[in-house]
Structure formats: structure tokens, C-alpha cells
């Protein structure tokens, strides 16, 4: 059986074949691994890899699994299970929406509806676990709607503010339009 796995940005192909009860052989590129394994609990896996004992710890996440091995964290996805969403525009740098990078609480909204904003201008101040961060306007425009207020709890992906782009050059008009749609959907 072959799995195509995504670890960070790289795709790793794992060819694995069962050899009876709890034993298998895996090939990754030209490397061969003789495996014996047992599931200790829902999150613990004990492996014998080429005769060497290894404990791996696994948790399911929304888009794959997190594996912890010898203190290191590996985020892995099955390429066949990654939903095919719209790809990010090439050459787009930095964030394109006003959305928090982690769950947080709104400390302040520094602009109001109708305000013009410059690209990179701070618009929302968030606090997560006592650390403050400022979210910036991803492009120049006019604030058309503020979706949050002070002390609201916010989650990644949630769009906190709609900004109508202005002075759009022909090269990024599509991106800006897309942005507006995304903002309207929330």
C-alpha cells in the first residue's frame, strides 16, 4: 500500500506492506524499514524500527495528524485527503485578510466604518494569553464594516473587518475582488 504524505512542504511517499500480525515493511525512497508495532493507547504507538525501539505519540487534528517523536513535533497530512480548495495567488505576500492568527480577545478597534486605511496600518489590537498583537490592514482602502467590538472572542479564519480596496492596479484587481467576496460571506 502506498501513502503520499505531506510533511511541512515536502511530499514523502511511503510504500508499506503488512507481514502478518503487527509487523510490516516500509520503503521510503531507497530506505527500507523492518517494522514491528503495537498500539498502546489511542495516542501511543510503540515501534520497533530495524530492531530499535521508538515511542511515537499521535493526535488527530482537523487536517491531519500531529506526531511527537523524541521531543519533536511533526505535522503530517495525507495528500489524498487534503481538500482541494482555491489556491493562494502566486506572489501574494503577507496576510490578505484581517483575521487573528490564534484564538484571542479583542482589546481595541482603532478604526471605524468609513475610515480610510493605508496598507499596513494597525486596525485591531488583540490579546491572547496576555500577549498583545496588532492586526494590520492588508491593503489600502475604506473600512466598510467592523465585525467585532472590544472584548469579543475571535477565532482564526474569522474576518474581523471588511475593507473596500481602492486605487487598484490591473495586476491585483482579481485578488481584491476575491477578498471582498470572502469578506461578505462572513
Amino acid at each position: 500500500m502506498e501513502y503520499k504524505l505531506k510533511i511541512r512542504e515536502e511530499t514523502v511517499s511511503v510504500d508499506i506492506n503488512s507481514h502478518g500480525e503487527n509487523s510490516a515493511k516500509a520503503i521510503i525512497e531507497d530506505r527500507e524499514y523492518d517494522l514491528k508495532y503495537s498500539l498502546i493507547s489511542e495516542n501511543e504507538l510503540h515501534l520497533m524500527v530495524n530492531g530499535k525501539s521508538i515511542n511515537a505519540y499521535v493526535s488527530q487534528t482537523a487536517d491531519g495528524k500531529t506526531i511527537m517523536l523524541n521531543g519533536k513535533v511533526y505535522k503530517i497530512q495525507d495528500e489524498d485527503k487534503i481538500p482541494k480548495g482555491p489556491k493562494k495567488k502566486k506572489g501574494a505576500s503577507g496576510p490578505s485578510t484581517v483575521t487573528p492568527p490564534m484564538p484571542a480577545v479583542v482589546i481595541a478597534v482603532t478604526v471605524k466604518e468609513g475610515d480610510p486605511v493605508e496598507k499596513g496600518q494597525g486596525v485591531v489590537v488583540l490579546s491572547a494569553m496576555k500577549m498583545e498583537t496588532t492586526l494590520c490592514a492588508p491593503y489600502k482602502g475604506i473600512v466598510t464594516k467592523v465585525n467585532v467590538k472590544e472584548s469579543d472572542k475571535v477565532m482564526p479564519g474569522q474576518i474581523l473587518m471588511d475593507i473596500d480596496p481602492e486605487n487598484i492596479g490591473p495586476e491585483n484587481i482579481d485578488e481584491a475582488k476575491e477578498e471582498k467576496v470572502a469578506a461578505l460571506e462572513t
Partner: peptide, 12 residues
């Protein structure tokens, strides 16, 4: 140890 991590993924 990404090989081992990948193997752990598959075995899990």
C-alpha cells in the same frame, strides 16, 4: 526523523 514520523502516521 521525518521517515519515522511518516511511518508512525501510516501505522496509526
Amino acid at each position: 526523523e521525518s521517515d519515522i514520523a511518516a511511518i508512525a502516521y501510516v501505522l496509526d
